[in-house]
Design a protein around this nucleic acid. Structure first.
Lengths: 203, 203
DNA sequence: CTGTAATATGAGCGATAATTCGCTTTTTAC
DNA sequence: GTAAAAAGCGAATTATCGCTCATATTACAG
């Protein structure tokens, strides 16, 4: 009755218990990242990832139930890092500073590994995400929303729409910059702030 | 000497001469679009496209030298349509109206077939585009640039950067809207205009 | 030291899918 | 009508790749 008719459940594999296997899992995830960013989705095969990680395919399948789980793990890793850095927004004295503290991590994340960031952004829309990832994403949205509520920023009529728009503006500009190539971190961050503040002010 | 060692040339296949084959080519391209937007990259196989188009794989390969050429044709088709509609920007009396005339087609294109638009946008970065497509894309960029030069819009210090940013803001917001689902065309267009004007004004 | 649990291995199964090619059918030109 | 060109066909070829499993190695508890 609780079986899987066609599409199988998330199928949680073995969790690493010893230090050795923890290192294996990390190596696999990082290998997946490198293959994706260097050679794209096309070359992204489980065999390629295993080889690059210096382990066997069998080991890979002990910790990741299917190929897509690798991408899932990557999304979780990268999103968690972004949100951790963005948490500092909550501590800023003014809304304007909080906004900067929100934007800078996005810019840094994107410029650090542009190809990877862009690709994962796309996969995020395609893959069903697990609860943990969904929660981290939600947290970022909440941080944005709370920032827009700061008293020194112009009030918005619909906070949900405004939050989505702001996130979309950031994502769009930062993505384009990653595609275009060489960009100065500070300059880009300043331009994104300009765009977002411009949007908020003209509400 | 003029041979292809490993990666073959664009390999131009037969061009359709009769009405029958023209219809075949169109059916194939549209089938490719439908498979991509309905079932994603995963299900996008030449056999699936041929079947959906009601032709044989052999026929498909008479007009498209390889699988990717299907996506290339789709990108050209969609981009051309967008640019055609955006041409009206040049005829607008004011810069503000020209900006609207630039933004509206983007919004319409995206909301018409959101999944397809998003996917092609991603493929555009992955695939090497032919000269024709490159030229159409350039034309859109030029239209944007010319619009930003209108005297009633605030002057920008770096027109290239400003143009890229504006395109990025449009793309980002419109993409997010397509992902989010139900959106009102007019409302979305108005919000994008707000964002772009806000950006331009705070320069 | 020894038994057991954890971890690692990689050849190979089964499935899918890109592309070709010899052939048939349809259209056009005369 | 007929020959040649254009269009269409789809089984067969070839290759790749996701994933499993029977087996080997390593770590750890007592």
């Amino acid at each position: 009755m609780s079986e899987n008719p066609l599409k199988s459940r998330p199928a949680p594999r073995k969790a690493p218990k010893q230090a050795r296997s923890l290192a294996t899992v990390e190596a696999i995830v990082e290998a997946a990242a490198r293959i994706l960013e260097e050679r794209g989705h096309e070359a992204f095969s489980t065999n390629a990832v295993a080889e690059r990680a210096g382990v066997s395919v069998g080991s890979l399948y002990q910790y990741f139930p299917r190929k897509d789980a690798l991408i899932g793990a990557l999304i979780l890793r990268e999103t968690s890092r972004l949100v951790e850095e963005a948490e500092s927004a909550a501590d800023q004295p003014t809304g304007k500073e909080a906004l900067s503290a929100l934007i800078l991590p996005c810019v840094e994340q994107q410029l650090r590994r542009p190809a990877l960031a862009r690709l994962l952004d796309f996969e995020e829309a395609r893959l069903p995400l697990d609860a943990a990832t969904e929660q981290v994403k939600m947290r970022f949205f909440e941080l944005t929303r709370a920032t827009l509520l700061r008293p020194d920023l112009p009030a918005q009529t619909d906070m949900d729409v405004a939050s989505r728009d702001v996130v979309a503006i950031i994502k769009g500009m930062v993505d384009a910059a990653g595609e275009h190539g060489d960009e100065d971190k500070r300059q880009l961050a300043r331009r994104v702030e300009r765009a977002v503040l411009g949007y908020l002010n003209s509400g």
